[in-house]
Simulated scan of single mutants.
Amino acid sequence: METLAAFQAALKDQTNTIAFISSENCSVCHVDEPKARKLAEEFEIPFYHLDIMQEPELAGFFKVLTVPAVLVYHEGKEIARQARFIDFHTLEKLVQQLPKQSEETDYQTLFN
C-alpha cells in the first residue's frame, strides 16, 4: 500500500501514472486491484494502490465518493476516471494510446 505523499511525488516525476483507490472491507476492490495492477505492469506504468481506510484524506484529495476507483494520469493531469463498475477493456484501450515519454507539445503546429 502506498501513501498519498508517495503518489504526489510520482506525479511530478512520471509521464503516466495509475492510481487504484480501495477500501480494505470492499470485496470488489480485492477482485479489481490485481486486474488494474496487471494492466499497469503490461504497459509499464507506475501503479499506486491507495486505501481510504488507512488515509481518509484520500477521498477528499481525489474527490472519490465510491470504491474501487481507477484514475489515470498523464503528465500529472487526470485524463480518465472509473469508479465502482470498472470497464477494463475501455481502460486498456486508453492506456495503449498513452505516449511512453513526455513530449513537448508544439501548439503552433497543433492549431494550424
Rank of each mutant, 00 (worst) to 15 (best):
K63L: 10
V31Y: 08
T109R: 01
T105C: 01
F62A: 05
A6F: 03
Q8T: 14
E75S: 14
C26R: 07
F85R: 11
I79R: 06
E2R: 14
F43Q: 10
S23I: 00
E103P: 00
L39R: 12
G76F: 06
R84D: 03
Q97I: 01
L50H: 11
Q82C: 09
E41A: 07
L94N: 08
T15N: 15
V72C: 02
Q97W: 01
A80Y: 15
K63N: 10
A59N: 01
T109Y: 03
L39S: 11
L11T: 04
R37Y: 04
V70T: 10
V31S: 08
I21Y: 03
E24G: 11
P99A: 07
D13I: 02
N25C: 00
Y107Q: 02
F43V: 09
Q14L: 00
I79C: 08
H30D: 07
Q14E: 12
E33P: 06
L65Q: 09
F61W: 09
K63V: 04
C29T: 05
K93V: 02
H74G: 06
T105I: 15
R37D: 03
D13H: 09
V64D: 01
F20E: 06
F20V: 01
F61S: 09
L71S: 07
K100H: 11
A80E: 07
F111C: 09
F111G: 05
E55P: 04
C26M: 03
A10T: 06
K77L: 08
I21E: 03
R84N: 10
V95N: 07
L39M: 06
S102C: 05
Q97E: 11
A6R: 15
Q108H: 12
P56S: 01
I21L: 09
A6L: 04
E75A: 13
H74T: 09
D106N: 14
K63S: 08
A69F: 02
E24K: 13
C26D: 11
L58I: 14
A10I: 02
K38W: 07
D51W: 00
F7T: 01
A59V: 08
E24Q: 14
A36P: 12
I79G: 09
K100R: 15
Q14D: 11
E103R: 13
I86A: 00
L65N: 05
H30I: 00
L4A: 06
E57R: 07
Q82H: 07
E33H: 09
A9F: 04
T105F: 07
N25Q: 10
A83T: 14
K100T: 13
M1I: 01
L94T: 13
A9N: 10
L58T: 09
E41T: 11
R84Y: 08
F88Y: 10
A5W: 00
L11N: 09
D87F: 03
G76M: 06
E78S: 13
L58F: 05
E92I: 01
L65F: 11
E103K: 14
K93H: 13
E78T: 12
V31Q: 13
E75P: 02
E41D: 15
K35L: 15
K38R: 14
Q54N: 13
S23H: 09
D13Q: 13
V28D: 03
Q14Y: 01
D87P: 15
D13F: 00
Y48K: 12
F7E: 04
L50D: 13
P34H: 00
I79M: 03
A80K: 10
L39I: 11
E44I: 05
A40K: 08
L98W: 05
E2G: 08
A80W: 12
I21C: 01
H49T: 01
L98Q: 08
A59W: 01
I52Y: 10
